[in-house]
């Protein structure tokens, strides 16, 4: 039955060992850029950002909308630093380092802006599942209560209908907020836009920086700007493919596994009792790393490390949500 032995085609064969290890073509070397940050000289390759330079010096710069795998959108403005000669502060996440720059990362002026940015966010957004931002608020002495009493949550869907331009002023002493009911329109993840700081990360992840599905966009304008599907339809009527890559990059917990949301509601969510284990997804041959978050021998959430060459932190619906089969235990 078996045909006689013949040399199999090359693609099916461990090939002879090449003389040299195959490597990508050498990139043109990037010249060094020398600058001074907080009085310390630092040298970074051309194209590096001020944030990179700060990282090299071990400086702790707060960030919210910055993500290592994404083009900086520089919208949160919490990472601003003072650049000598510049009229305004500059966002360190996106400002490219240039030779001769003199940068201060912790001047009074810098601290004042950071404090205000945090204060403005804390006064308008629910940061209860954003411990990193809460910690920064404390560190910089943000006093959100200065801006008035929190506005009550707007009725379901009301914010989604707001039009640009004309609007009504709230009662004196009331500080506008983005508070609104949680959107739960599918069994996999929820969207709690009361917690949205509008960092654009989910839009980037859904868009051309990862998933390329474009189910969501920023809609509206000004304080009424919001993340929205077309005409604010439920996700189930949108282009969403439930890859959950938006959840993976959300810095505030506005986007959350339904499993986590439900457990938090029930008071059973306990990160201290959770163990994270890296493994490889079983659903196709791409080889995506899954980080399984397990509590009480149950998978409660799935993420992927942002620094993996294959996933860059992204997964598909099967990898992120297809774990139920191992939970359905007798």
């Amino acid at each position: 039955m078996a045909e006689p032995f013949r040399e199999p085609p090359m693609w099916f064969h461990a090939p002879p060992r090449p003389t040299r290890v195959p490597m990508p073509p050498a990139e043109a070397s990037r010249p060094a850029v020398d600058l001074v940050v907080d009085g310390k000289a630092v040298s970074v390759p051309a194209g590096a950002t001020l944030l990179d330079a700060c990282a090299k010096l071990g400086l702790d710069i707060p960030t919210i909308c910055q993500h290592p795998n994404m083009t900086p959108v520089n919208v949160c403005r919490v990472c601003v630093v003072e650049l000598e000669g510049a009229r305004t502060l500059v966002p360190s996440c996106s400002r490219v380092a240039e030779s001769g720059m003199k940068v201060s990362t912790n001047s009074d002026r810098v601290r004042a802006s950071r404090r205000m940015v945090l204060e403005l966010l804390a006064s308008s957004v629910d940061l209860s599942t954003a411990p990193d931002i809460q910690r920064r608020c404390a560190e910089y002495g943000a006093r959100p209560e200065r801006h008035g009493s929190p506005e009550p949550a707007s009725p379901e869907g009301e914010r989604d209908q707001r039009v640009p331009g004309h609007h009504h002023l709230p009662e004196p002493g009331i500080a506008r907020r983005v508070a609104q009911p949680v959107k739960i329109d599918n069994d996999l993840y929820v969207r709690d836009y009361s917690k949205c700081v509008l960092c654009y990360k989910c839009v980037q992840a859904c868009g051309d920086e990862a998933q390329n599905t474009f189910a969501i966009s920023v809609a509206g304008r000004g304080f009424d700007a919001r993340i929205s599907t077309e005409n604010a339809v439920p996700l189930t009527d949108s282009a969403c493919v439930y890859c959950g890559n938006c959840i993976g990059v959300c810095p505030t917990g506005a986007l959350m596994f339904k499993s986590e949301h439900d457990m938090r509601q029930a008071g059973t969510w306990d990160e201290s009792a959770q163990k994270q284990t890296d493994t490889i997804c079983g659903y196709c041959g791409v080889g995506c790393t899954l980080t399984l978050h397990v509590q009480d021998n149950t998978i409660v959430k799935v993420t992927s490390p942002a620094d993996r060459e294959i996933t860059h932190g992204n997964l598909c619906i099967k990898g992120r949500f297809g774990y139920q089969s191992v939970q359905n235990k007798a």
Partner: peptide, 19 residues
């Protein structure tokens, strides 16, 4: 009314200023 809403200082700041 006219803030585009992109950055925090202006999006929230113009609102707080008006309030």
């Amino acid at each position: 009314d006219e803030s585009c809403g992109q950055c925090v200082p202006c999006r929230v700041g113009t609102s707080r200023q008006e309030e």
